[in-house]
């Protein structure tokens, strides 16, 4: 459903010459994306609840924060790799900063300080955001594969099932965001985004920041809390 709604939001970009009257003066797409984000709160609330409910209930390891000795005597170290995830968290947090700069570049196109400067180069900022998103996904791919090598798959235990599903859902959202950013970048390269198109970047940015705040919650609740 994510794609359906977020993409619908693009639909008027070819028709912005008909400026439609709205009762609140707000753009339809922005109202819709906020309603969508509200709904996403509940989606991640259900996922996070399940993760927390199943915390400490796995009957076999590997476990997130505890050492686990298997019946055959094999010892499994705590599986979460805090330094690596801190690095990926840093990348995602900074991508939000880059995202607001992309929006500012489009909104202020042609204004003093934005002409011919890096600050006004929306293509650069859009590309940078997408790249940072992709980097985050790279970290996640690394994390997932190393967990599998250490013996934790989605089938292993309750922790594995709820962990991979929760972070996988988040990763899928990041992936959708990266595709969205690349689509905007393509439009920017093809015809150039003007202040009139700021709404297109704005709704993408709102989605992107939301995915970021979800990660803020996940990082604390999954990785740090014991």
């Amino acid at each position: 459903m994510a794609t359906a709604v977020t993409h619908e939001a693009h639909e008027a970009h070819d028709t912005h010459e008909h400026v439609h009257y709205t009762s609140t003066g707000l753009d339809n797409r922005k109202v819709a994306i906020w309603a969508f984000i509200g709904s996403e709160c509940m989606l991640f609330a259900s996922l996070i609840s399940t993760y927390l409910i199943y915390k400490g209930r796995s009957r076999v390891g590997p476990l997130p924060h505890e050492i686990w000795t298997s019946p055959s005597g094999q010892i499994f170290q705590p599986i979460l790799n805090i330094p690596v995830t801190s690095a990926s968290t840093f990348v995602l947090l900074m991508s939000s900063l880059v995202m607001v700069l992309a929006l500012a570049a489009v909104e202020n196109r042609g204004k003093p300080g934005y002409v011919g400067t890096l600050l006004g180069n929306s293509k650069f900022w859009l590309a940078a955001t997408a790249l940072m998103g992709a980097t985050f996904l790279g970290f996640q791919a690394y994390e997932f594969t190393s967990f599998v090598h250490e013996g934790l798959t989605i089938k292993t235990n309750l922790f594995g099932s709820s962990f991979f599903t929760l972070t996988g859902f988040h990763g899928a959202h990041v992936t959708a965001g990266v595709l969205w950013l690349l689509t905007l970048l393509a439009i920017d390269i093809k015809r150039g985004l003007t202040p009139k198109d700021a709404i297109l970047v704005d709704i993408c940015a709102l989605y992107w920041h939301f995915v970021d705040v979800v990660w803020i919650a996940i990082f604390t609740l999954v990785y740090l809390i014991k």
């Binding site: 399940t50 409910i53 199943y54 209930r57 796995s58 009957r59 076999v60 989605i154 089938k155 292993t156 235990n157 309750l158 594995g160 099932s161 709820s162 599903t165």
Partner: peptide, 11 residues
């Protein structure tokens, strides 16, 4: 996955 597998400790 094990979400509803009682044998694995699911609720």
């Amino acid at each position: 996955t094990q979400f509803y597998e009682i044998a694995s400790g699911a609720d």
